[in-house]
C-alpha cells in the first residue's frame, strides 16, 4: 500500500467508469429477432425495428458524436443548427451576466442587513418569502414585463442567485468577531475603511460559500429557463435535439452541462480557498 489515497481513488474511479461503459455498451446491443415486415413499411421504421438495434445510443455513438462536436464546436448554420460551443457560450453569458447583477445587489444589501439589526428585521420577511419561490415561476411575469425572452432568462438567473448570496453575506457580516471590531474601534478606523479592511475579509469565506451555492443554482436553472424561452443556449440545444430525436446529442449535452457546472463550482472553490484564513 505504497500508492497514495489519491492515486488509488483515481484508479477505482477509472474502474467504475469502465464497468459503467461496458454495461452501457452491452445494454444497448438490442434484441436479435427482427419482425418480418413489408419493405415499404420497413422504410418508415427506424433501425430499431428493422435491424433489431436498440434506439438508445451506445458509448461508441456518443464518443463519435463528441469527437464530431470537438472538430467543429462553433459552427453556425442557422437558428436550429449551431455548434455546442456556441450554445454553451450563450448559456454561460446569460449565467454570468445574471450572476454578476446578483452579486452587485446581494453583497451591498447583505452588508446592510448584516450591519444593521433594524434592516435585518425589516427585510427578513421579504427574503423568507422570496427565497423558496422556484425561479421558473418568475418566468411568465418576466416575459410579460420585460418582453424579451433572453433578458427574461437573465432576470431568472439573477433572482435565483441573489438570495443565497444575500443571506450568506448578511450572516458573515453579522458574525464578524467583536474583538476585531473592537480593534477597529480603538484604532479609530473610519466606517468605510472598517467595512473593507475588517468586515469584508472576516466575512469573505462565508460570502464565497453563498456565491458558490448561487452559481450552482444559476447553472441548474439556466438549462430549464432556456428550454422555456428557446432560441439559443445549451438548454435549448437539449430540447431541440430531443425534438430531433437525437438522443446521442442529448447525452452529449448532459455531459457538457455537468462538466461546465463542475468548472464553475471549482473556480469559486478556488477563490474561496484564497480568501479563507486559518485561525
Amino acid at each position: 500500500m505504497l500508492t497514495s489515497l489519491n492515486a488509488r481513488g483515481a484508479l477505482l474511479s477509472a474502474v467504475i467508469f469502465t464497468v459503467f461503459l461496458l454495461a452501457w455498451h452491452i445494454g444497448v446491443q438490442g434484441k436479435a429477432s427482427v419482425a418480418q415486415m413489408d419493405p415499404e413499411y420497413a422504410r418508415l421504421m427506424g433501425v430499431a425495428a428493422t435491424q433489431g438495434k436498440s434506439a438508445m445510443p451506445g458509448p461508441l455513438d456518443v464518443g463519435a458524436q463528441i469527437w464530431q462536436h470537438l472538430q467543429e464546436p462553433f459552427y453556425d448554420r442557422g437558428p436550429n443548427d449551431k455548434g455546442v460551443g456556441i450554445q454553451l457560450a450563450y448559456s454561460l453569458g446569460r449565467v454570468l451576466l445574471g450572476y454578476a447583477l446578483a452579486v452587485l445587489v446581494a453583497l451591498p444589501v447583505g452588508f446592510l442587513i448584516g450591519m444593521s439589526p433594524l434592516m435585518n428585521r425589516a427585510l427578513d420577511p421579504f427574503i423568507q418569502v422570496m427565497k423558496p419561490i422556484s425561479p421558473l415561476a418568475w418566468m411568465p411575469l418576466a416575459l410579460y414585463t420585460i418582453k424579451d425572452s433572453s433578458i427574461s432568462a437573465i432576470f431568472v438567473i439573477f433572482i435565483c442567485s441573489v438570495w443565497p448570496m444575500m443571506i450568506n453575506t448578511a450572516f458573515g457580516v453579522s458574525a464578524t468577531r467583536k474583538e476585531w471590531l473592537n480593534v477597529a474601534r480603538t484604532l479609530e478606523v473610519r466606517p468605510l475603511r472598517k467595512a473593507f479592511t475588517i468586515i469584508l475579509p472576516a466575512a469573505a469565506p462565508t460570502i464565497l460559500t453563498g456565491m458558490r451555492i448561487s452559481i450552482g443554482i444559476a447553472w441548474l436553472v439556466i438549462v430549464a429557463a432556456e428550454m422555456l424561452v428557446g432560441g439559443t443556449g445549451i438548454g435549448y440545444f437539449v430540447w431541440n435535439e430531443w425534438n430531433n430525436l437525437s438522443i446521442t446529442n442529448v447525452i452529449v449535452a448532459i455531459l457538457v452541462i455537468g462538466l461546465v457546472g463542475m468548472a464553475l463550482d471549482q473556480t469559486l472553490a478556488r477563490v474561496a480557498r484564497a480568501v479563507t484564513y486559518p485561525e
Binding site: 468577531r177 474583538e179 476585531w180 473592537n182 480593534v183 474601534r185 480603538t186 484604532l187 479609530e188 475588517i198 475579509p201 472576516a202 469573505a204 480568501v275 484564513y277 486559518p278 485561525e279
Partner: peptide, 18 residues
Amino acid sequence: GPSLDRAVIFQSHALLPW
C-alpha cells in the same frame, strides 16, 4: 469614545488572521 491615545492589548490577542 475610543482613541488612538489609548492602546488596548486584548486578552485574546485579537489579531487579524488574514
